[in-house]
Design a protein around this nucleic acid. Structure first.
Lengths: 245, 245
DNA sequence: GACGCGCAAAGTGTTTACAGTTTACTGTTT
DNA sequence: AAACAGTAAACTGTAAACACTTTGCGCGTC
């Protein structure tokens, strides 16, 4: 397995040297971070020239980054008026949870028949880190561990596409959920353990069901807290749908 | 319900006049169409200046369109080398079917409790159109009716986000599936009828199950035909996964 | 004082120009 | 003849400039 070439010896440690990479990537990631961190508030007008000035680049890369962010739902692009941080409206938060639940439970089901002992050990480690973070009230670490757990399960499905979608949705959840993280605490990690148990048992249906229920719990927690935060305006009926686009 | 204003009379027929809209949109859609039609072949190098010349625009809008297409998985962007039409590799086609199945069955389940008589009538009409197209061997019309049916069900879920994802995946399917459309014929429309029946019954679980099975059938059809088209290389084990990105 | 008109500032849409990288070719050396 | 270095063409990455649209403000009019 040693990757050697010509007669020049062993090159295994030789990693390609780092290169700056296109500006648009860094711009895109920077902006996404700022949006998630809510430094850039929903609805805020993202003026190209201002962003370009602050980031010390020209408008070109900024515009390209905005295109990509638009395609992923982080930014709304009103023709002739520019880019605005996307405003999650109405039932949208709920929708993210629903879609995520569907995809993650699918992933968990697929993972059940492919999970080895090493994978289980990884998952258990992540859970330990998560519990520790909860005890330490280290919010950032909790979020990180939670993301790591869900991403790890998604990866175990073996499907790159599914993994990509889930990762993207997880970022969205992290963004939307931010105002209300603290509430769920240790309970969430017990559910993670249940999921692991299902994976160990190799029971596809159970794994899928457990993951779905976990997602549903999280969604409920969100609903309660956000309901308490927002005015007590209880919309009895979910608002009229309408077609996407 | 009449939308009137001031004392100026009835404005219901007054639709905002059409405007050209940003070039990048039209470039993006044109390119996507060309990719789906396979005029632009997978792996093909998309040279910015050439596209710009042919479309009679400058490179700016072209680059922006390529960014958006990249974010949606139509185009690969190799830094320093440019844009290439995405090459579906290995199990990727299969993955699209899996994800689509998960999302569409979710949508069908949600639709079951929200479907009214008018919706049912619409769906039946679409099915009639589909059957007619199959009898007439009008491939384009078949594909159109099929897309319409699936999109309509997705819409009935009432979730815009879900709808958007499904629409995007449907385009992907249309692209990947293109080489092997003709085989499924009338059988597919019988399954569509079953789905409608489940919706009429208002049985969420049944609707979800039926839709999933329908998706699965389509996937199997794809596998058989593509297996027959490609060499008889029967990969026993689905190729090793690896992480997305 | 309310309304409408016109002007000016701000910002986006698009093009053009320039710098840096990649790639293929050509000639040279061993 | 094979391998290498050097070089030129092609193309991408980035910046800057120009044209047009939107938006807000001030002025005049009814």
């Amino acid at each position: 397995m040693a990757r050697t070439r010509s007669g020049l010896g062993d090159f295994d440690d030789l990693t390609p040297l780092e290169r700056p990479g296109p500006l648009r990537h860094r711009v895109q990631e920077t902006l996404r971070e700022l949006i998630i961190a809510r430094t850039l508030a929903p609805g805020q007008h993202l003026v190209e020239s201002e962003l370009a000035d602050r980031l010390q680049v020209s408008r070109g890369p900024v515009r390209e980054a905005l295109q990509a962010l638009h395609a992923n739902g982080w930014v709304d692009l009103r023709p002739g008026r520019g880019a605005f941080v996307h405003e999650p409206a109405g039932q949208e938060v709920d929708e993210v949870f629903v879609v995520r639940a569907a995809l993650e439970s699918e992933a968990a089901g697929l993972a059940a028949s492919r999970t080895g002992p090493a994978d289980i050990a990884d998952l258990r480690t992540i859970c330990q880190r998560g519990r520790q973070a909860v005890r330490a009230s280290d919010e950032t670490a909790v979020v990180a561990a939670n993301s790591a757990f869900h991403l790890r399960v998604a990866t175990l499905s073996g499907l790159d596409l599914l993994c990509g979608y889930i990762t993207a949705l997880d970022l969205r959840v992290r963004w939307l959920y931010k105002p209300v993280v603290r509430t769920r605490g240790m309970h969430s990690w017990d559910e993670h353990d249940e999921i692991i148990d299902a994976l160990v048992a190799g029971d596809e249906a159970l794994a899928a069901r457990t993951m779905r229920s976990h997602s549903e719990q999280t969604r409920q927690a969100y609903k309660e807290v956000s309901g308490a935060l927002g005015e007590a305006a209880e919309n009895g009926r979910p608002q009229e749908p309408g077609v996407h686009r």
